[in-house]
Simulated assay, not measured.
Amino acid sequence: MDNQDIKSLLITKLNLENAYITGDSNHIEIIAIGDIFKGASQVKRQQIVYTPLIKIITEKHIHAVSIISYTPKEWEQNKKINNSNHLLK
């Protein structure tokens, strides 16, 4: 499963506004943006993103995952504060 497949899976299953996936099957980094994260703790946000990935992880198609999640409002604020466009691929 490539990064585009993972992106499509997350956007579809979690109804995300957008997702950015970098890395390879050994380690992927995910930036997930969606209203689904409103009011959720960081732990809950991680659980939300892991849920559609469980099968891929347990079948060892992905070894390690780093997740950063934002609501759309948080994402816009973060882009302005940190000028984080260099993270996008």
Results as ranks from 00 to 15, higher is better:
residue 58 T to E: 09
residue 83 N to K: 05
residue 85 N to E: 11
residue 76 E to Y: 08
residue 43 V to R: 07
residue 76 E to W: 01
residue 52 P to I: 02
residue 5 D to N: 01
residue 74 E to H: 09
residue 16 L to R: 02
residue 49 V to S: 01
residue 19 A to D: 03
residue 46 Q to C: 15
residue 53 L to Q: 00
residue 51 T to K: 09
residue 32 A to M: 07
residue 30 I to G: 06
residue 55 K to M: 08
residue 78 N to E: 15
residue 62 I to L: 14
residue 6 I to S: 12
residue 7 K to C: 13
residue 61 H to E: 10
residue 50 Y to P: 00
residue 49 V to I: 07
residue 82 N to T: 12
residue 63 H to F: 10
residue 77 Q to E: 13
residue 20 Y to T: 03
residue 15 N to W: 00
residue 74 E to Q: 07
residue 22 T to S: 14
residue 37 F to L: 02
residue 37 F to M: 15
residue 6 I to C: 12
residue 56 I to E: 08
residue 65 V to H: 09
residue 29 E to T: 10
residue 44 K to R: 14
residue 44 K to E: 10
residue 53 L to S: 09
residue 58 T to N: 13
residue 31 I to H: 00
residue 24 D to L: 11
residue 63 H to D: 14
residue 87 L to V: 08
residue 75 W to E: 05
residue 51 T to V: 03
residue 68 I to R: 06
residue 68 I to C: 13
residue 62 I to H: 04
residue 80 K to F: 07
residue 27 H to I: 08
residue 49 V to P: 00
residue 50 Y to H: 12
residue 41 S to Q: 11
residue 16 L to K: 01
residue 35 D to P: 07
residue 87 L to H: 03
residue 41 S to M: 10
residue 45 R to D: 11
residue 78 N to A: 12
residue 60 K to M: 15
residue 24 D to H: 11
residue 72 P to W: 01
residue 46 Q to N: 07
residue 81 I to F: 08
residue 63 H to V: 15
residue 49 V to D: 03
residue 7 K to N: 07
residue 11 I to D: 04
residue 86 H to P: 01
residue 1 M to F: 11
residue 75 W to A: 01
residue 32 A to Y: 00
residue 58 T to K: 14
residue 25 S to N: 13
residue 14 L to P: 00
residue 25 S to E: 06
residue 81 I to H: 13
residue 32 A to K: 04
residue 43 V to H: 04
residue 81 I to K: 05
residue 46 Q to W: 08
residue 32 A to G: 05
residue 61 H to I: 13
residue 30 I to V: 13
residue 37 F to P: 00
residue 22 T to E: 13
residue 20 Y to H: 04
residue 59 E to L: 12
residue 34 G to I: 03
residue 26 N to E: 06
residue 39 G to L: 11
residue 73 K to W: 00
residue 79 K to L: 03
residue 43 V to T: 07
residue 29 E to P: 01
residue 22 T to M: 14
residue 48 I to S: 11
residue 65 V to W: 02
residue 69 S to N: 09
residue 9 L to S: 09
residue 25 S to D: 14
residue 73 K to M: 02
residue 72 P to G: 07
residue 24 D to E: 07
residue 58 T to V: 14
residue 12 T to I: 03
residue 20 Y to K: 06
residue 56 I to L: 15
residue 14 L to D: 11
residue 61 H to Q: 12
residue 41 S to P: 02
residue 53 L to V: 05
residue 27 H to N: 15
